[in-house]
């Protein structure tokens, strides 16, 4: 899910260390961050303490996060939840101003100004006997709870995940523990098969003639490719949509998407929809809405980071 920043684009890789002041984050209120793991220069994981939400969360749902009271409301799909520990896990790709700022400022022991959810209708874990769970980019993490739910429901689960390169791979063990088969696809072939997740799907469909369902989460262009791959085979394909939204509770209508030629609000009618009925052109065009402002915000943010770094060195 993304707010005014969109996923899937190639971010200018920029490691974000402690380059922004943390004053506002140090207050006692808010939601404590208990774990942070950096998977790569742009992808990182936050585990946030919220026992009530950990109890309520179901696969497929999302949260809205606010970094501080000047921040955006950023929608993020829940990557995992631990009911015993009382935490929810978010995996964030630092691609825009707000997510880069999160990368720089969210450290263990600090708090998030706001986290609301779980939002959206939980994914339907059907009685499918054999499913392919596909994750790419930002979708790798949130496909995990779905794969686990299908496994717990007794399905034969084939996991297919896509990365640019082997160095970016994360959660491999975690996936293998809930998948009967696990296929990694990389753009450069440094791990698993060389190619896109659609090749992984093709492989799985060819090997197993009896796939009941495919669930795909990732950038819109990937989800469309997955839907097109399964369409000729007539395999039910669910996708999780990530339009721009503000409140996440059905109030603004910014997240409206076209499914089966009808307008739906992704936040309250979704975020899961039948991939064969989704108008992906419409979704992708709408994701461009605030591109100029996003670029400007990024530019300003990078500038102020550089300035801070220089000041740091001078001191």
């Amino acid at each position: 899910m993304s707010s005014s920043e969109t996923q899937g684009s190639d971010p200018a890789a920029q490691p974000g260390q402690d380059i922004m002041p943390n004053d506002e984050m140090s207050n006692a209120t808010g939601f404590p961050i208990v774990t942070r793991t950096d998977f790569s220069e742009t992808t990182f994981l936050l585990e946030v303490e919220h026992p009530q939400m950990a109890r309520a969360a179901r696969p497929g749902q999302f949260v809205i996060v606010m970094l501080d009271d000047h921040g955006e409301r950023i929608p993020l799909t829940i990557a995992d939840f631990d009911r015993d520990k009382g935490t929810v896990t978010l995996v964030i790709q630092a691609v825009g101003k707000s997510s880069r700022e999160m990368q720089a400022r969210c450290q263990v022991g600090q708090t998030l100004f706001g986290i609301a959810g779980p939002m959206g209708i939980p994914s339907e874990v059907s009685h499918a006997k054999k499913v392919i769970c596909v994750g790419g980019g930002l979708g790798v993490a949130p496909i995990f709870p779905q794969a686990r739910a299908f496994k717990e429901a007794g399905a034969y689960v084939i996991g297919v995940v896509g990365f640019r390169s082997a160095s970016l791979v994360f959660w491999e063990e975690k996936f293998r523990s809930v998948c009967d088969e696990f296929i990694i696809c990389t753009d450069d072939g440094t791990a698993g098969i060389k190619g896109l997740v659609t090749q992984g799907i093709e492989t799985a469909i060819t090997t197993h003639g009896d796939i009941d369902e495919v669930v795909a989460i990732g950038p819109p262009i990937m989800m469309r490719a997955c839907a097109e791959t399964t369409r000729p085979h007539g395999i039910k394909t669910m996708v999780s949509l990530n339009p721009i939204m503000v409140d996440g509770t059905g109030m603004c209508g910014g997240c409206r998407v076209r499914v089966d030629n009808k307008v739906k609000f992704a936040c309250v009618d979704g975020p899961d929809f039948d991939g064969h009925a989704v108008d992906f052109d419409d979704l992708m065009a709408r994701l461009q809405r605030y591109r100029p402002q996003e670029a400007a915000a990024m530019e300003r943010y990078s500038e102020s980071c550089k300035r801070l770094l220089v000041e740091e060195e001078v001191r």
Partner: peptide, 19 residues
């Protein structure tokens, strides 16, 4: 909502844009 709740009128001081 963008204007009143999220203060988009004060973009870029506040992060939410409104064109």
């Amino acid at each position: 909502t963008r204007c009143n709740l999220m203060h988009a009128g004060d973009f870029p001081k506040f992060d939410t844009p409104l064109e």
